[in-house]
């Protein structure tokens, strides 16, 4: 194996878990699709490695590629949107409880943009500005996705 492939392999091993987990959340738990998107993301990152300007972190750049891959897939599946779910879906008859599972269920009912913004800013610890860079959105848009997503989740989880 070439030194280039070996060092890239280290990057893949180091970041695969977070990237795949992020994509699983975007695809509402579709592990196979998330892994396909993660694979395409890493291959594209390897191809474009020379274009990485080092302005942000490598991981942010990687997440940006993953997000655009996700959007491409969503456009491709026009008839079956990945990010949106009818409000009637995923209705849980149990009383709302503040559990992680409830949060995951609630997340699945948010728009993909809200899920991505909330995941980046909370679970992955990015600032709003960094998330805006990753999602290629204006800062204000990211902030409103975070706020709106959080408000929706709060309403879903409150008894």
């Amino acid at each position: 194996m070439s030194a280039d492939a070996e060092s890239f392999g280290r990057l893949v091993r180091e970041h695969q878990s977070r990237l795949r987990a992020f994509l699983r959340r975007l695809t509402r738990g579709d592990a196979a699709l998330a892994d396909d998107l993660a694979q395409e993301t890493f291959l594209e990152a390897h191809r474009k490695l020379a274009q990485f300007e080092g302005r942000g972190s490598f991981v942010s750049w990687l997440f940006g590629i993953a997000w655009s891959r996700f959007l491409m897939e969503r456009r491709r599946r026009k008839e079956e949107p990945l990010g949106e779910i009818e409000d009637t879906a995923f209705v849980d008859p149990r009383p709302a409880a503040e559990t992680r599972l409830d949060v995951e269920r609630g997340m699945a009912r948010l728009s993909a943009e809200e899920r991505a913004a909330l995941t980046l800013c909370y679970a992955l610890g990015y600032s709003h500005g960094e998330a805006a860079g990753i999602l290629d959105m204006p800062l204000g848009t990211v902030k409103s996705h975070v706020l709106r997503g959080r408000e929706k989740l709060k309403a879903m989880l409150e008894p």
Partner: peptide, 15 residues
């Protein structure tokens, strides 16, 4: 709850 880290995903030959 939102700040909890995402679940680890085992490599399982992915890399």
């Amino acid at each position: 709850l939102l700040s909890e880290p995402l679940d680890d995903v085992a490599d399982d030959g992915f890399s």
